[in-house]
Computed example of a mutant assay.
Amino acid sequence: MSDTRTLINPAQLNRTVYRVVLVLAVTAFTLAFLGPLYLLVTDGLKSTAEAIQTPPTFYPHHLEPSNYSDAWNRLNIAQLLLNTLWYAFGALAFQLVLDVAAAYSLSKLRPVLGNVVLGMMLATLMIPAMVLVVPQYLTVLDLPLVHLNLLNSPWAIWLPSVANAFNIYLLKRFFDSVPQELLDSASMDGAGPMRTLLSIVLPMSWPIIAVLSVFALVNVWKDFLWPLLAEPDPTKQTLNAGIYSLSLGVPENVLIAAAAISAIPTVLFFLIFQRNIMSGLTAGSLKG
């Protein structure tokens, strides 16, 4: 059977079609993700009339970069930023201590009814977060047993963030992949469970800990409703909640500029640590 000779090699045609489709798909997804960020930043550079104009303009016809400095000063963003950092890193510290301890216990110490406890924790992931707002608010309003009011204190942000079943599950899955032979060797050398955790398990767990750190920081940073309820004082609120509370009488273009400022840290944080996030999510997926 003789080969059919054509002007265009079919293999070359397939590669060309593949590249065209790939470029179009990447371009479409890039525009879908970066388009809102571009509009957010550029709307903060417009006048008030142009910012609320319908249909919106694609670029500022008259640049007003002073909107960003006005947003920084009028909405006290420096203080709100410090509040957010304080809450975020405090929540991270509590999550690393308590969630790591819970996951290590369920994975390696294997307590009685440990699987039942894990199943009950995972079941809470099926409950919508909005359903938990009211009982969570009543809890921090009058903490059981000690009867303390935690409103307007960092504990109202820190304590609810510790109960994170998703983080415990990710940590447990990673700890399950740590070879049991290493733990047995440490036990034969006289190391207790705490020493084994600190000296062997945690040094091997930096990829997943990095991922959970990113999740913990971003979750506090982007949260809006709970900081608004738990911190009624606007001077003690997080960045997003504080901008909303202090927005009365502030022009729309200045508010948009403030929203753009609040988005910058999380975007930079993801761009810097995106490789760690992806490697950490796949860490522990394979045994051995």
Rank of each mutant, 00 (worst) to 15 (best):
L170Y: 03
Q79D: 14
I52V: 15
A93T: 09
L197S: 04
F94M: 14
S213Y: 01
I8W: 14
Q136S: 12
K172A: 02
S153H: 08
L183N: 08
A101R: 01
N73E: 12
L248E: 08
P179Y: 02
V162Q: 01
Q79A: 11
P251G: 00
R5P: 00
M278D: 03
L85Y: 04
D184I: 13
L106Y: 08
L13K: 12
Q274E: 08
G35C: 06
S279I: 02
Y38T: 13
Q274D: 13
L22A: 13
D142L: 01
A25G: 07
R74K: 15
W221P: 13
E64D: 03
L212T: 02
P36M: 06
P207A: 06
N115Q: 07
V26D: 09
L239Y: 05
I208T: 05
L197C: 06
F33N: 08
S66Q: 12
K172T: 11
L225R: 00
P203V: 13
S205P: 03
A241D: 06
R15H: 02
M278K: 12
T27A: 15
N240G: 09
N73Y: 07
V214C: 09
M204H: 06
E181W: 00
L202D: 11
L198G: 02
D176K: 07
D70L: 15
I277Y: 05
F174M: 05
L85Q: 03
A283E: 14
L82W: 14
V20M: 08
G114V: 00
I200F: 04
A216V: 04
A123Q: 01
V134E: 06
Q180P: 01
L118W: 08
A51M: 09
L212E: 09
L34Y: 13
A91H: 11
Y169M: 14
V162H: 05
L34D: 05
L229E: 07
V178P: 01
S205N: 06
A258I: 00
K108E: 00
V41A: 09
L37Y: 10
A263K: 10
L34W: 12
V133T: 14
P65K: 09
